[in-house]
């Protein structure tokens, strides 16, 4: 119990807001990792980040109107994902620009809504909350809806798993097998919207990219099979999120008066995991190339 007491500050396991944070954060981490693997494979990291940022416009609008934040974040992200897929841009440069322009417009809207919020005084510090998230202030009432949405996103990805993989290899190959590539893209876009709005609410709009891309990039480095990459990404995302929550809770004891932000710890843990993965992959690659050069050098002597 002594060691446990050192790791878990008193009250961690019995604290209501902490429970909510663990549940919603865990859900966001799992969905972020799964969707993120496909997002990175499809080369849509920028789009993923842009959706998160654009969803913050919805978040700030719901602050203004007093709506459930989930509705605002999700509605805006789904709308943006729909527009991106509807525009149907195959050319990589054009997609990059379309994403950028939409991001700019979405952030403009965020600025406007936050301005209204500050003028009407309906929410002070709304900017900070919307953009940087606030894990410990998530209302417990949101948990069932958040977890249900996480489940929906996972179900969508599971349903289109194979066509999604094949179209990441080549859209032509997927189409030749009768897959409707645009439909698959749209389904992935909406799963992405679900994932980013969940994490935008927890770690904040501009940090949700970390949960989406970080664990996925690490998982992709470590494994040569899609299933294992997914499993590793989920593991890294979950550990980083729960570890971050724990550290943030503990940090109230380090600096008396206020704790350190949860998102800071989560991102730091994700990034450390990524660096370790990159390092491991490099070492392994070097091992392979050494073995290729000295086929007999397997330590027989």
């Amino acid at each position: 119990m002594g060691v446990l007491g050192l790791i878990f500050a008193p009250g961690f396991l019995s604290n209501g807001p902490v429970h909510t944070a663990l549940l919603v954060g865990g859900g966001a981490a799992v969905v972020g990792a799964v969707v993120g693997v496909f997002t990175v494979m499809r080369g849509q990291s920028f789009a993923g980040h842009a959706l998160a940022d654009v969803s913050s416009a919805g978040g700030s609008a719901s602050f203004l109107l007093g709506l459930n934040p989930l509705v605002g974040f999700l509605g805006m992200a789904a709308l943006a994902a729909g527009v991106m897929e509807w525009a149907d841009v195959r050319d990589a440069r054009e997609r990059d620009l379309l994403t950028g322009v939409m991001l700019g417009a979405g952030l403009g809207l965020t600025a406007l809504f936050l301005y209204f919020a500050s003028v009407t005084g309906s929410a002070s510090g709304a900017a900070i909350t919307v953009l940087f998230g606030s894990m410990f202030t998530i209302p417990a009432s949101i948990v069932p809806a958040a977890l249900a949405l996480a489940g929906v996103a996972l179900a969508v990805i599971a349903a289109i798993y194979r066509p999604l993989l094949l179209s990441a290899v080549s859209e032509d190959l997927a189409q030749a097998q009768g897959t409707r590539v645009r439909l698959i893209g749209l389904a992935h876009g909406w799963a992405l919207a679900l994932a980013v709005s969940l994490s935008a609410m927890t770690v904040g709009a501009i940090l949700s990219t970390a949960l989406l891309i970080g664990p996925a990039a690490a998982g992709l480095r470590l494994a040569d099979r899609p299933g294992r990459s997914l499993a590793l990404a989920v593991l890294i995302g979950l550990l980083a999120t729960w570890g971050g929550i724990l550290l943030a809770y503990d940090s109230y004891d380090w600096t008396p008066g206020h704790g350190w932000p949860v998102s800071f710890f989560i991102v730091v843990l994700v990034f450390i995991a990524y660096l370790l993965a990159a390092l491991l992959a490099r070492v392994r690659a070097r091992g392979v190339s050494l073995r290729a050069v000295h086929p007999s050098g397997c330590g027989q002597d």
């Binding site: 798993y161 194979r162 066509p163 097998q177």
Partner: peptide, 11 residues
């Protein structure tokens, strides 16, 4: 994926 790349659901 050449065999079942268009199928829905997990393999």
């Amino acid at each position: 994926l050449g065999l079942d790349g268009a199928r829905l659901g997990l393999p």
